[in-house]
Design a protein around this nucleic acid. Structure first.
Length: 425
RNA sequence: GGAGAGGUGGCAGAGCGGUCUAUUGCACUGGUCUUGAAAACCAGAGUCGGGGUAACCCGACCCAGGGUUCGAAUCCCUGCCUCUCCGCCA
């Protein structure tokens, strides 16, 4: 969420930004409502002040007649205040509804464009795109061949989009987590396993919108709990309402959780196999920083993602995400797209990680602040997130890129200690 | 899950419908005193929002949200959390 005062004071700039990011928002209406709201707020405060004054005078008022008059006066003022207050609250709700739809500001270097077609490639991984001397199988075929994944059984017990991992796929899942968490600990991240459920209010703060028709979120009936779509939600929520000290920052967490997504509206779109599933495991990086630190930490998160996939021997490219494809909270976003030889006709790039600098957009809604030494007041922290390993997609990339002509699959060196073998099959 | 107790400022801990602005202690900041320090004494100190060029003024905040009342930290309801006991359980 952007600061309301900022929106009002920079309405033109905000409108341009909305246009670049493809967000249809009535900023003018917000400006208009906000003006009315502020005027109403002053009425409320004035009425409140007078009501307080009257109420206070009653305590020391001994004469019964005068007292009764005062009580009546107080009642009248409080009623007037309540009326003004509810008018104010209605305006505030309307303003908030619009405010919530306004996306974050955008990094000046982010490529401008309406969708992912405008994304700018900014780098490649160390591994070259493999040039197989045979027709490579996709991960569904490979998984079947080696009895790694049971999609049919998954569908039987929970529907399309669920699956059972079996045999070496289980070892790979665990190995990827071990590998990623281990590396992140070395980099100074504090590992945490987070809840897989979170309150609606936390989801909203992080920028997710549960319970709409288009929602990606599974909600628990008769409660305000939701299955998390990423531990970004729980990690961001960890410090909601907190005021941190400047010298604690930056704080780096690496969170491990299951992720649940309804994938509403995504049916039929490149959803074969593990690519688009309703549940997967993810190792997530999350950082709380000062405003000065966030750009550098963003580069750092991206560098870690690159290192992880380089060490897995997976070819990838890095793209700087175009304005129209950033989503609401991100100020800038880099995606890692791994080469997936089994996708499409001759292989395609498929997103495996994503890292965003959300600046103060999430922190404002979550109310996460920090205090500078020897300075009054507080500032909002910046929040950043990045995928270390989304296990399902990483597994696709591993199976498809490391397959051999004889149908076996080489286990990446860095995972061998955890998998306990060099080769599947 | 059942029964009880409780959530107050950085911490400890009063306050149980209106005396002036939420006692008090510790910690904190500034000052006085001192060669310096300690002690003592004096003073100050939170957050968010609104108004004002400004010193400053005002509103809100005693876990959260509702309610009763002219007036709520205090009374009522709901939720969340903590503690104690019981039950159940990997």
């Amino acid at each position: 969420m952007l600061d309301r005062k900022y929106i009002v004071d920079h309405a033109e700039e905000v409108k341009e930004n909305c246009a670049r990011r493809g967000a249809a928002v009535d900023v003018d209406r917000l400006v208009e409502i906000e003006e009315l709201r502020r005027a109403k707020l002053q009425d409320v405060q004035e009425l409140n002040r007078r009501a307080n004054e009257v109420a206070k005078s009653i305590g020391s008022c001994k004469d019964p007649t005068a007292r009764a008059e005062r009580v009546e006066e107080g009642r009248r003022l409080r009623d007037a205040k309540d009326t003004a207050q509810s008018e104010h609250d209605r305006l505030d709700d309307e303003a908030l509804a619009i405010q919530t739809l306004i996306p974050n500001r955008t990094h000046p270097d982010a490529p401008i464009g309406t969708d992912d077609g405008a994304n700018r490639e900014v780098g490649r991984g160390a591994a070259p795109v493999p040039d197989f001397a045979f027709k490579p199988l996709d991960h569904v075929q490979l998984a079947e061949r080696h009895a790694l994944i049971d999609f049919e059984a998954g569908a039987r017990i929970a529907g399309h989009g669920f699956y059972f991992l079996k045999n070496e796929a289980v070892l790979l899942e665990l190995a990827l987590q071990q590998f990623a968490v281990g590396l992140l600990i070395q980099k100074g991240f504090t590992p945490v396993i987070t809840p897989d459920l979170a309150y609606t209010e936390i989801l909203n703060g992080v920028g997710f919108i549960p319970r709409g028709p288009e929602t990606q979120i599974y909600s628990i009936e008769n409660s305000n709990l939701n299955l998390v779509a990423t531990s970004e939600i729980t990690l961001g929520g960890m410090y909601s309402g907190a005021t941190l000290d400047e010298d604690q920052l930056p704080i780096r967490f690496c969170g491990l959780s299951h992720c649940f997504r309804t994938e509403a509206g995504a049916a039929g779109r490149a959803s074969r196999g593990l690519y688009r599933v309703h549940q997967f495991t993810k190792v997530e990086m999350f950082a709380f920083t000062t405003p000065d630190q966030s750009d550098a930490v963003h580069e750092e998160l991206c560098a870690i993602e690159r290192e992880l996939f380089d060490r897995l021997g997976i070819p990838f490219r890095v793209v700087d995400t175009a304005t129209g494809d950033l989503g609401g909270p991100a100020y800038r976003k880099y995606d890692l797209e791994a080469w997936m030889p089994g996708r499409g006709e001759r292989g395609e790039w498929g997103e495996v990680t994503s890292t965003s600098n959300c600046t103060d957009y999430q922190a404002r809604r979550l109310n996460i602040r920090f205090r500078k030494k020897a300075e009054k007041g507080t500032h909002f922290v910046h929040t950043l997130n990045g995928t270390a390993v989304a296990v399902s997609r990483a597994m696709i990339a591993i199976l498809e890129n490391h397959q051999q002509v004889d149908g076996t699959i080489l286990v990446p060196d860095v995972l061998r200690p955890f998998v306990g073998k060099d080769r599947i099959g």
